[in-house]
Structures are given as C-alpha cells and as structure tokens.
Design a protein around this nucleic acid. Structure first.
Length: 708
RNA sequence: GCGCGGUUAGCUCAGUUGGUAGAGCAUCUCAUUGACGUUGAGAGGGUCACAGGUUCGAAUCCUGUAUCGCGCACCA
C-alpha cells in the first residue's frame, strides 16, 4: 500500500498536481482521446459551451456551480466515449465592465468623461485581461476539464469581425434598422440600455391633478410638462364630446399662457383619473406613440444629464430631482393645483447596475426587429427543438418571447465592439470595412449580448471553422437569471444564422445564496468566495456541496457545514481505499465470485444503472446522492465491516474457505474500482489520486470507461 | 395588471411516471486504542400550508383559498 494513505486525504497537496497532469495529458481536448474509449460511441461528439464569465472580477459561487455541473457532465460523457468538448471563454461584458471600471476611476478621483476614448479603451482592456488571467486560474482550481486550447474571448479579432458581419447581414435583411425612438437612457452612465437592462420598481409617487384650461389632467411627472401643448382624451369619452379633435384653446400653464390642441386617441383611458392627459412625447414611450400617430412635433425637455433645458425658462438647468417640488409649488401658487394623491403607486424604471432613474429619451439608435426572430424562436420551442430544464421555464420563455419589443443594440460607451455602420450625407451603410471616402463610422458599440448571443456559433467557428462540426452543441447550462439576456438571444441567432437551435437542451440553475438563503451581495457582506471554501475543505467537497440536493431552477443555500460534510466524505473514501489496498492489494480482479459476492456486485451494478440514467437525464443531484449513500452507508458501513472476519486480521485469522476469501478480495477491489469511476465526475481530484495507487490502473481515471 | 414558482423534521432541502414520508446538519443516548473520531450503533422529531374533488390508494393529479418569493409590464 502507498504510504500516502497513512495520513488523511490532503486536497491542498493533491489538486494542483493532479490538474497539471490532466492538462499535460491533453485529454481535455477530444482530439487526443484514445480510440478504444471513443469506440463506445463510434466517436460521437458531446459539446458544452461554457457561459463566458465576465472578465471584470473574481469568480463567485455561481461560477463555481456552473463549472461543477458542466464539468460533471463533460467528464461523464468523456468516460462514456464521447468526443467530449467543453469550450471555455470569457466575455468583455461591455456595459458591466465599463461600470466596474468607472467605479474604480471614481475612487481615483477620475472620470471617463473627458478622457480620450482610445486611452480609456486601452485602460479597460488591460484591466480586463488581468482579470481574465486571474479568472482562468480560478476555473482551473475548480477542476474544470475544459479544452483550454480552444479558449475564446469575445474581443478576439476574428470573433469581432464575425459579430460585425452578423450586423451587416441583418442590415441587408432588414432586421436591423436605425431610428429615432424612445430609449432607456441612464443619466449616470450616459448610455442607452435595452429593456432587459432596466428594472421596474414600484414606488409611491404623488399623483397630481392640475387645471389645464377647462380640463383637469393627472400626472406623476410635473417636471416634464413644460412642452405639453396637446391634450388627449378618448374619442368615445362622452364627458368631453363637445371637444373635437384638432380644436385649439388658450390655457394658462407653468410659464404663462400657451395654445393647446385637443387630440382624440384610444390610448387615453377613460377609467383613469379624469380621462384627460397632456403628453410629453420626448420623455415617455406611450406619449411618443400617440405623437407619432398624429404627426405631432416632439421637443426635448430634459437633457442627457437629467437637467431641464431652456424651454423650462426659469427652471432651466435644474435637475429633475429638484424640479418637481418647485414646479408643483409654482402651479399651486397660480391656483392650478387641484389635488395631490399621496397614496398613488407607479412603476419606475431603473438602471439595473446603478439604480439611477431611467430617463426615456428619443434618440437615433440601432434596433433589432424582434417580431420575426422571436416568432422563429417560439416555433422552435413549440416543435420541441429546445427543451428546458426545469420544464416550467419554457412557459416563462414563451411569455417573454411573445411580447418582446425591438432590441436597442447601440451603446454610448467605448468598451465594446464598434458598430460597423457608416454614414455620409444622411445615408447609412453597414459594412465591416469603411465603404469609401467620406464615410464616418457610428461611434457607438454593441450591446454586449449582441456578441455573446452568437457565442455558440462564434466559438465553434460556424460555418467554416475547424470545429464547426461541434455545432449545434448538446447542452446549454447557465443561470436562470440570464434566460432573456442570453439564452433567448442565442436561440434567435442560432436560428437566424445557422437555421438551427444552438442546443437541444437548456438547463437552468438557480442562484447560490448564503447559508440563510439570502442573496449574496457585497453591501450585505455575505458573499462567499468559492476559493476560500476549496482552500479549507478541498475542491471535491465544494463540488459535492453545490450539487447534492440542488435541483434545477431552485436557489441553493450554500452552507459551510455541508461543504465540511463532503470533506469528511472525501476522507471516508480515502480510508476505504486504504482499507482495501491494505487487505486486498494482491487480489485477482478477474477472480471468480461466490454467489453471495456476485449478488453484491449486482447490487452496485444497479446503483450504476440508476446513476447513469440520472446523469443522462441531467438529474445530477440524484446521481450524486445515490452514489454517496452507496459508498458510505452500504460499501463502507456494511460490506467492508462484513468483510473483516472473512479477510481475517493478525489477531484473528480468517476461518473462511480460501475460495470465499479470494472471492471477497476480488469483489472489494472491483467495487472500489467501480466506485472511483462513479465518483470521478463529481469528485475528480480525490478519485484520480486514489486511482493512481491501484495496481490495475494503467490510464488516468479521466479516460477510464464508465462502468456498466 | 399578466405570468411562473415555493409552502414537507429545529435549520437547509430531496421525494424522477400516485402505492402506508427521506437526506444532511442540529439534538439526545451509547460504544470505541478497530481503514477512518473527519468514527460507529441507536433515538426523538412531520395531521407533507389549508379546504374540497378524482382514485382502491394523493406530499404527488384537479379546483379553490392563504402566504412567501421571482419574472414581465408604455395606464398618464
């Protein structure tokens, strides 16, 4: 027996060495897998594309979960004889990284505004690359058996070019258009955002009713009302039937008398308030639509920084935060305030990163026409081309897809892929290269999800790259929270560009929360760094703790004592191996079994069968638990105990017949071997380390055949 | 407002097609120089949120209620 078994299992002195050996072996790359292993499936591929982590910080517990789940599946499939490919990568994460970096600039007393864009870009690039290197080291530490030789980054020049080509193609197909429309403007970060990058929050906001000529109008935003020259009511509203569409009237308003025009439009809700409203098309989506229907002029009231423009006269330059009270005060003084309802609740949009109030603004932007694309995606789901785990996520997906708005893909930040659009004399062209003399490129960059949405296609080099055969992939495993941001976009781009969904199965895991089930956040101070846990208890222990009992779609409470428990398990396995090697090191693994022992072997075969079926069905949590219980409660607690008298000790030699002893020795060695294989995907380090000490082991465990 | 989940032992959660409730941790008792104290044996602890229904049989399927959570949302 190897003397290392005399001490408890020590992850710290094992894991780095084992990982290095795996990497050196080249087996993370399916091209290097031995023929007899692949013969099991005749060389079928199994591909997972790793959700590229944002290269702007450390790995968190959520990363540890996805690395674990995907590594389990990849190792399992590899042992089953698939050309198992798990492609790693990193995302430049446009807006999010820019936000992180701007925070850092703020701390240093600097600001991106006023910086040379190129210099800023270079700084963020350096920051991102440093983080990326750090992150890659952390993914390795978690045991990820992904193929680093195929690692990709969203800003690799070839990927940038492909991303831009997609835009050009969509432009040609009429699926992207440039238009002045209402966008979500973040006044802090000075960029527009897509709908999914905003959060709707319900707030208590006073609801004011003002006199507006003969009418009473309701609003929660008096500070936008300077330019309101149109008063809107429903055409069927009998209360206002004496007013005709287009009637004009003089009304006394904030800064004196103005001429108002009556507009009849179905958008006015007769049940709400007085049924009459004035509109501010530049700063409200619904007002914008009404104005467009009637070809009404639109005027900007609030500037890009959130301050009132000169149209506000005496209030010009006042931030909208301060303006409301002042304007209400003035209107009240003029006797135009009818009442204030303090109990009113309305929904406001906030920037999902900085919680600044989103200001709707009308801006020339690039939009993706979603209706035809979304309908392709829904059709694919209806046909069963994409299956969701858990199943109910399909309903959520469909609900969103069936009512999605056009997607604003322009961002006014430097950190991103430049939009390959050029203009000259008011004309626009889409082209990766400058189309000719005198053309100026659009200064905006893509929404980061525009590139990551193409990720499965980009990393496999579809359609002509050397790995194009790995597309479509086999499984998308990612967080439930980015179903719309990412999964939906990948499905759309896959259908649009390759005429096929990028993966038949979407496995969505929940959040990893703290021990009390509360969401981890820096401000609450309850963030658990996965690497701290692996240092304390070993990577295998953390992996088990993340996986056992963690059903798809459900949030997980990560408890330190659970991780500790699986450290105990790793050591239990270690000692099982010690016992077996000490007593049975000389066993003939191919020996004949007694009837009783054959039964025990069959019992493990049943465990293997159910675990196999569970992993195949992505019920990883059940497989992990059943193997755990077999190893500890059955194999160690009962079979090993029962074997002691059969094998005999120095003090009490065995009184059993030689064939019974030989049979038992074979059985213990065989079952240990099988248990190590079964556990390998879950606990790759300790199993590989034990495996190296078995006399029967010729290959590393990572490329052993999965037991049957 | 629309949509989706959860509600099971003190805590965190399983329970894959309906067949008399499970795990880990915690608690209590006992054992032990044994492969492993990072151990072993055992115990206590749940009318499976509530009310109806379907069924020979429901934690599981259906309907409704309560409650917690999440997602989406252009009623000023």
């Amino acid at each position: 027996m190897d003397s290392k078994f005399l001490k408890p299992y020590d992850p710290a002195s094992t894991e780095g060495r084992i990982y290095e050996a795996w990497e050196k072996s080249g087996y993370f790359n399916p091209d290097n897998l031995p023929a007899d292993l692949l013969a099991q499936t005749e060389g079928k591929t199994f591909t997972i594309v790793m959700p590229p982590p944002n290269a702007n910080g450390n790995l968190h517990a959520g990363h540890a979960l996805f690395v674990t789940l995907q590594d389990i599946i990849t190792r399992f499939k590899r042992m089953r004889g698939y050309r198992a490919l798990w492609i790693p990568g990193a995302d430049h994460a446009g807006f999010e990284t820019q936000v992180v970096y701007e925070k850092q600039l703020e701390k240093e007393g600097r600001s991106r505004f006023g910086m040379d864009p190129k210099a800023l870009y270079e700084e963020i690039l350096a920051f991102t690359l440093a983080n990326k290197a750090n992150m890659v080291g952390q993914i390795r530490a978690l045991g990820a058996s992904c193929d680093w030789s195929r690692e990709k980054f969203t800003l690799d020049p070839d990927l940038v070019k492909k991303t831009q080509e997609t835009f050009v193609k969509m432009f040609g197909d009429g699926l992207v258009y440039r238009g002045a429309r209402t966008v979500n403007w973040c006044p802090k970060h000075q960029t527009s955002l897509s709908d999914v990058e905003t959060e709707s929050v319900e707030e208590s906001t006073p609801f004011y009713t003002f006199k507006y000529g003969p009418f009473e109008i309701g609003t929660v935003r008096p500070e936008t009302k300077f330019g309101d020259k149109y008063v809107v009511m429903h055409p069927d509203d009998k209360r206002y039937s004496k007013w005709k569409h287009g009637d004009t009237l003089e009304v006394e308003w904030i800064n004196g008398p103005i001429t108002a025009t009556v507009i009849k439009d179905n958008a006015a809700d007769m049940e709400f308030g007085t049924g009459v409203m004035t509109i501010t098309p530049w700063h409200s989506q619904i007002d914008f639509e009404i104005a467009k229907r009637h070809s009404l002029p639109m005027e900007q009231i609030i500037d890009w920084r959130g301050k009132l423009l000169p149209i506000a006269q005496e209030f010009a330059g006042v931030s909208i935060k301060d303006a409301r009270a002042k304007i209400v005060e003035k209107l009240a003084a003029k006797g135009l305030l009818v009442k204030t309802d303090e109990t009113y609740k309305n929904v406001v949009k906030k920037c999902y990163k900085c919680s600044a109030m989103i200001e709707p603004q009308v801006k020339d932007q690039w939009f993706v026409k979603m209706a035809p694309l979304a309908s392709m995606a829904v059709t694919a789901v209806n046909k069963g081309d994409v299956r969701f785990i858990p199943e109910y996520e399909e309903k959520i997906f469909r609900h969103w897809m069936e009512d999605t708005h056009d997607w604003n893909i322009s961002r006014q930040i430097v950190w991103g892929i430049p939009i390959p659009a050029w203009h000259k004399d008011g004309e626009w062209k889409a082209s990766v290269e400058r189309p000719g003399e005198g053309w100026t490129q659009d200064g905006d960059t893509f929404d980061t999800w525009f590139s990551s949405g193409q990720w499965p296609l980009l990393v496999t080099g579809y359609p002509n790259g050397k790995d194009a055969g790995y597309y479509p992939t086999d499984l998308m495993e990612t967080g439930r929270d980015i179903l719309f941001f990412w999964v939906a976009r990948m499905i759309i781009f896959g259908l649009y560009l390759a005429d096929s969904v990028p993966f038949p199965t979407v496995y969505l895991h929940g959040l990893v929360n703290d021990a009390n089930g509360k969401k981890m956040s820096k401000s609450k101070g309850n963030v658990i760094n996965p690497l701290t846990l692996t240092d304390m208890y070993g990577t295998d222990a953390l992996r088990m703790a993340l996986v056992v009992g963690n059903t798809p779609g459900t949030d997980l409470a990560l408890r330190e004592d659970k991780v500790k428990g699986y450290k105990h398990f790793a050591n239990k396995l270690w000692n099982i191996a010690r016992f077996v090697l000490e007593n049975v090191g000389d066993a003939d693994v191919n020996g004949t079994l007694t009837e009783a022992d054959a039964k025990l072997e069959k019992e493990l075969a049943d465990v293997v069968a159910s675990a196999t079926a569970n992993i195949e069905g992505y019920r990883v949590y059940l497989a992990a638990e059943s193997i755990y219980h077999y190893v500890w409660d059955r194999f160690a607690a009962e079979i090993l105990e029962e074997s002691k008298p059969i094998l005999g000790t120095h003090d009490a030699p065995s009184s059993f017949p030689a064939d019974v002893v030989a049979s038992r020795k074979s059985l213990l060695m065989r079952n240990l071997t099988t248990c190590l294989k079964l556990l390998h995907p879950f606990m790759p380090f300790v199993t590989e380390e034990i495996w190296a000490s078995l006399s029967s082991s010729k290959n590393p465990l990572i490329i052993e055949k999965w037991p049957t």
